[in-house]
């Protein structure tokens, strides 16, 4: 049965009758049959060739399909729109114009945790400063009030090496970190980096 099936779909001459299609001559004893091309294979091949031609026409000749950079821009635009919507709804009240420092202990401890994970490599665990400035002293480069700190974390200061965190942290998390950072003011770090920027009253 299986044998018949295989012979049928391949349009093969049955094994018993293959003498009829045995080609003359042999190569070191190897003989060749002259079975026809399996029809499904021929159509499949033709189909693949048509696909290949169609592919080039679709993407290049007629320019219907989007090539990679266009594809990318679309993907980013969708994500951007989604993000803006999120900022306008869920995080509507947490932006650089409205944000306020949190005082709740659990919020601050979340902030601390995030700070240790994201900020400590440059500002040290106790905020004493290393690659980044000291966060415990009176001197600030980009403002010491809640809104300024929130803004600095969100957008970064690329020219000076402070990265923008808005793709890794949501506004609430930035609010938590900024609130925690403000609690460091006046503490005594193990190794304090020399003051940078102006003395900031508020």
């Amino acid at each position: 049965m299986a044998k018949d099936f295989i012979s049928n779909i391949n349009n093969a001459v049955p094994v018993e009758e293959e003498d009829k299609i045995l080609l003359e001559g042999s190569h070191d004893g190897i003989q060749e049959l002259d079975n026809p091309l399996p029809p499904w294979w021929t159509y499949f091949f033709a189909g693949c060739v048509l696909f290949g031609i169609g592919y080039i026409l679709y993407y290049h000749t007629f320019g219907i399909g989007s090539l990679q950079t266009v594809e990318y821009e679309k993907e980013v635009a969708i994500a951007q729109a989604k993000k803006e919507e999120l900022l306008a709804t869920k995080y509507a009240k947490i932006n650089e114009n409205t944000v306020v420092a949190l005082a709740d202990a659990t919020e601050l401890s979340t902030g601390k945790e995030l700070y240790l994970g994201k900020c400590a490599s440059c500002h040290l665990k106790d905020g004493g400063g290393n690659v980044g400035p000291n966060l415990t002293d009176e001197n600030w480069l980009h403002g010491c009030d809640m809104k300024s700190v929130f803004k600095t974390i969100t957008y970064g200061v690329p020219a000076k090496g402070m990265i923008s965190w808005q793709t890794q942290l949501n506004p609430l998390q930035i609010q938590q970190i900024a609130s925690y950072i403000l609690t460091l003011k006046g503490t005594t770090p193990a190794k304090a980096k020399a003051p940078q920027g102006e003395i900031c009253a508020k």
Partner: peptide, 9 residues
């Protein structure tokens, strides 16, 4: 065994 199909090859 003989090779199945000379044409295919």
């Amino acid at each position: 065994r003989p090779v199945y199909s000379y044409r295919l090859s």
